[in-house]
Design a protein around this nucleic acid. Sequence first.
DNA 1: GACACTGGGGACAGCGCTGTCATTAAGCCC
DNA 2: GGGCTTAATGACAGCGCTGTCCCCAGTGTC
Lengths: 344, 344
Amino acid sequence: MSKATIYDVARVANVSIKTVSRVLNGEPKASAETRARVMEAARSLNYTPSLSARALSGSRSFLIALVSSGGVSDNAMLYVTELQMGAIQACRAGGYHLLTEYIDLGASDFTALTETLVSTLRVDGVILIPPLCDDPQLLSLLAQRGVTCVRISPTLDGSAEEKWGWGVDIDNYQAAFQMTRHLMDQGHRDIGFIQGHPKHAAAAQREAGYRDALFDGGPIPDRLIQPGLFTFDSGLSAARALLEQPRRPTAIFAANDSMAMAVLSVAYKMGIPVPSALSVAGIDDLPAASVVCPPLTTVRQPVMEMGAAAARFIIDRTAGQVGSYLKKVFDHSLVVRESTAPPT
Amino acid sequence: MSKATIYDVARVANVSIKTVSRVLNGEPKASAETRARVMEAARSLNYTPSLSARALSGSRSFLIALVSSGGVSDNAMLYVTELQMGAIQACRAGGYHLLTEYIDLGASDFTALTETLVSTLRVDGVILIPPLCDDPQLLSLLAQRGVTCVRISPTLDGSAEEKWGWGVDIDNYQAAFQMTRHLMDQGHRDIGFIQGHPKHAAAAQREAGYRDALFDGGPIPDRLIQPGLFTFDSGLSAARALLEQPRRPTAIFAANDSMAMAVLSVAYKMGIPVPSALSVAGIDDLPAASVVCPPLTTVRQPVMEMGAAAARFIIDRTAGQVGSYLKKVFDHSLVVRESTAPPT
DNA sequence: GACACTGGGGACAGCGCTGTCATTAAGCCC
DNA sequence: GGGCTTAATGACAGCGCTGTCCCCAGTGTC
């Protein structure tokens, strides 16, 4: 009862341990009858193979690491949590397990991290979250060691892209383009924009989408565009800069929800009613987005599915499939809630 | 370069592998000189021991599992994320690694989970999050298999408590008591309360704190107390029930922040200004609590530290320390923000 | 009938460590 | 100085699997 090994199963099924191993791993050489006998024995003994033993003797570890960095703060963590949820589910389905590792961005001991991942844990793959997924040093270290990487919302880096692993993302340009058009359709023309973190690829793409959607033949005045860092606090300053202008915009589109919520907060404090005097929109559809007042108009990305796809890619890859897309782009969708309305 | 083993280190240091093992594990028998030589060799080779091999041959796996359940939703996930953050940090410090497992509450295949944890992963300990940490079936399965458990915010179950593992928590009673007194100090007497999930131990304790603080010789009218489930949605209905009363309370204390935010949302929709016409308070200090309008008065618990303590307990325990408190109670603190004010 | 060939299955050697026990050199007591 | 303990180290046998090689029977094939 305490611990069934492959030997026990072999004895009960009256075959060699190698045959048990074959059956359990779905290898071809095994007659249907033998297979059934082994399965039955395994079930009756409540047998589960030891991960350590499999990893030690075989070439797979059944482990995937999700690496997140300290830089990620406040609400953005929800993004990570949701990704993780998806990854865990995909792992369960594939008999894998998810390790979560954490690294301080400051002390960049990427060598130690890599060594841990490769030598100590021998993970079958790594899921990298921004901004880690865009760090050339880390990426090349991992590539050197032959680690399968999946990058979440990575920078498109042309040539190097391929060797640095698969990626999952949404079409950030389109998302921002559509949101801007949504505001324009409501009649807004004076639409402020809060930029994302300059090192994050999605930030630039979202800004481009905004610019292209808004561009009507004339350039966009500088005063409409304020820098941000994807964090709530950075959104606060940007919102103030936008709203304290003599002729303030009728709508503000922030590059993500955290900053959009900051806009809501500043507007509240300044006594500017949303959406009647100011429309506010974001991107991400954080859980909190539907909870704030008024609920935020935003763009939803299928974060959980992206996490699941990331894990699945690693699992399939390790199992043999070689499929090497450059990256998979997921569908997004506009979520119109109450923070946007035609200007009055 | 690709993969240094203990043999390589032994060769370089000119000792046997057993000695390397001893040095690396901090076992006593090893001269200072040998120790230095081995350390140097290990460093120069960039050696990291293989977890699988260690787990297979030794009695420790250096793995801790954090088990969360599907029931956890929306903002509550942040609580889990923060716990996890703390646990990861403690793991890193102790050379451990954190696995995150997930289980659907509906399909209670706890046997499979336990088997995976014990046989497949051979984890050194498990961190259980509510409501999992209060499930007798799971707890007894794990206890049977001799798994070290740490329960987060567990139900105090007297007799059985001890054998079911260590626990970390805050003093929920005191937290609620103090918050209620804070509202009373501001002059509130008509203080509504939204209960937490009936299966969650903390819910009952918080309610008791509220009741005892408010009780002034007369019983508390039923209309002031509404059921909730710790979720935003449940908070919505409770808030409506409270605010649609002919004589509505001047303050509402929700058993957690998610529900307090729901109160904010309902008040906003009903045109009730907070805090001038209604004070709102919660417990947890979710990141979102400081972001909503107005920022929420709440009780902060040191969630990250609690996660770290949980992991540390398992690590120490596995390393030999036997220390068996029943549970560790962490300090909480009142965070007074803008959602509470004297009634007008 | 000899000769591949193939589907089904076993023997066996590790994977890289730790536990146990044995061994050696030193120190110590009377 | 012989027998004792003690500190420091090594030899060796696994831990529970998978990879590789090998064997054996049946089945065509000319």
